[in-house]
Design a protein around this nucleic acid. Structure first.
Lengths: 207, 207, 207, 207
DNA sequence: CATGAATGAGCGTTCATTCAT
DNA sequence: TATGAATGAACGCTCATTCAT
């Protein structure tokens, strides 16, 4: 990420940076990282091709920035909501709902996270995962808390369950964008996933 | 996919086709579809660049072929094993284990399925999903069978559960290739996923 | 070359123009004309990129200005010193020494003259040569004077000798900047060149 | 420098490589390295742009190759002719004549050597000079031989004289290409330079 | 069938120049 | 005058695809 000076920028620069991020998210989601052209992003953002390079080092830097900035928003929002809760069951519910809401609200972003970030090379993946781990790590934390409270089964591996839940959410919300089948509302979906997952990991399932 | 005539091919042609598929699977898994070059595949297959075009129409055709052929193997293998079973619980177990075994055995393929097929454009995705649906549809079928037998909760949407389970398996096995964390054996993983998922969808979970 | 109005400039403008010339000379010498960026010059001159276009029409105009202004200085200085002399041998000595001193003193300029002005196209070269001819023409004039005085060999072609001497001085002083070998002082070098050249063109060499 | 395989190339490949070298020499001479476009060279060589990259790594590699190959020819030719001579005066004559002949015969090359190789950065210059030193070093060797035989003045620094002579030849032949003035024949020019230079460095000049 | 040299369309990126402030 | 963000034309290079051998 770059930034063209900081004199009296105030808002102009911020706007342009944001405009490019939004445009890139849209274009990447629609065409994929490799198929997307810089000129596509520029056109979408209504700036010149060269302008993009005033704010980003290269094409991949745009992808990373899109990822970082957008994921940060979700992660922070979710973390904040969770800080008000103590019941691991409610916390799981919150995470699931928030994730699905975010994915549904920003379909472009969903694509970017789910699809584009599975590309490129290992180095990039590592970087991505470090960032992403912070987010998915929330799930594992909730599970561990539930286990220490005797609510969740102790034989469940938090890291495995974390992946299983994230994978389930990821695949489920992918449908919304691919629009391959009739799809369900966020609430329906969240309920289904939550009830399955909760029953699956709870010690004494009562539903 | 092409086929270079049928004059006196006998076996050579089949061998070359197969060699290219294997090479492509390896190269796509390692470098990704867009980053992989035709010459990489040719070199890996010990074949001239031009030879590839005797067996495939274009680069994307190779990807599709890799997908079709390899997925067909898994699907057929799984279908055959399932035909010997009637208990929806056992059937789910078989599916999960077989999928994870296949992913672990053929890491290249796992990457191709999980990563490469999330790229390219919508048209491709649709095509992919039609093919892939046959495979993941197995899960939905098992669930419906379990529901009609009164074993699985009737409030569970089979198509949603199908996606949730596939997503969970997909994400869980992704770790094996990315090797980001200490990972579990196939059996461990299968047990965890199975027990979570079974408890989650069973009407009266007793395990 | 431009000139930004003449309202109340006084001195500021002159300073800025000069600052840019100095900066450009330095940058061109270091990076070459084509590799040098306007922003490099602007940064070196501690001026905004756009400011440069208040004083020069374009990048090439800067190069020309650098050349013109700096060569003019040398030419005028040399011409003034020569006006006090009548002996063609002393005049040649003066030219050689002055040229080498100038090159040594202003290494950046030396690079600009020697290297940068050999780039660009024919049109430019012609222009350059017209300007430069005034300077190198001094050598031919000295030789002609010496020939008419019967001191220099009449079979020597002044224009050829002019080029030979300038080429020798040019190449010899190039070493100082490229610092490829142990190099000699101005005096040493001047003596060597002078004694060689004088012996070469004198009618009755007595040294 | 590259080469596309070595199976049964025999002549085709060689031809194409040579064609590109010739075309590049011509284009570089006409437009200069930086102003020359790869597509110019390709067009001149009647090949596709991409073909050039089958034989050269990049644009600069073409320049280096042109330089190396052409200078090697001159250097080898001159060295061979010199091996038949022992008189330092004749040897100097041979060098001067051969150099001027080569420059006159291949005007494109002359430009490339004289102009283009003064560009780019220090690293390149060093490389150039190492190569070029082998050639200009011949002059210094001749002078040293003449000094040890008592024919050339011992107070002359061979390395300085070497540069002076090369610079003189360089500048003199530059005129042929710039065609700025009426110019002399090779013989005329060689005679003038030789007689000046010989008189300049001989111990007892008798001409 | 097999080869791999040749092709050329296409894209990421740079940077001289402009212009609104 | 001065600034520097914005522009967009231009180019080096890649690589999927073709085709003469």
């Amino acid at each position: 990420m770059k930034s063209p000076g900081f004199r009296g920028q105030g808002m102009k620069a911020e706007n342009k940076h944001a405009k490019i991020i939004v445009a890139a998210t849209k274009v990447f989601a629609k065409k994929g990282f490799f198929t997307a052209r810089i000129s596509d992003i520029a056109k979408e953002a209504k700036v010149a091709d060269g302008t993009i390079y005033l704010y980003f080092n290269n094409k991949y830097d745009i992808l990373l920035s899109v990822f970082e900035e957008e994921v940060k928003k979700i992660a922070e929002n979710t973390a904040q909501l969770l800080s008000l809760e103590t019941d691991p069951r409610r916390m799981l519910e919150i995470f699931i709902i928030q994730h699905l809401i975010a994915m549904k609200k920003n379909k472009n972003l969903a694509e970017v996270i789910q699809i584009e970030l599975r590309q490129t090379n290992k180095v990039i993946k590592d970087y991505r995962d470090n960032k992403f781990s912070e987010y998915t790590g929330i799930i594992a934390d909730i599970i561990r808390r539930g286990q220490s409270l005797g609510i969740y089964r102790s034989d469940i591996q938090p890291d495995l369950a974390k992946r299983a839940l994230f994978g389930a959410l990821d695949e489920v919300s992918r449908v919304w964008n691919a629009s391959l089948e009739t799809h369900y509302t966020v609430d329906e979906t969240a309920n289904q996933i939550l009830s399955m997952f909760l029953s699956g990991i709870q010690l004494n399932p009562e539903n």
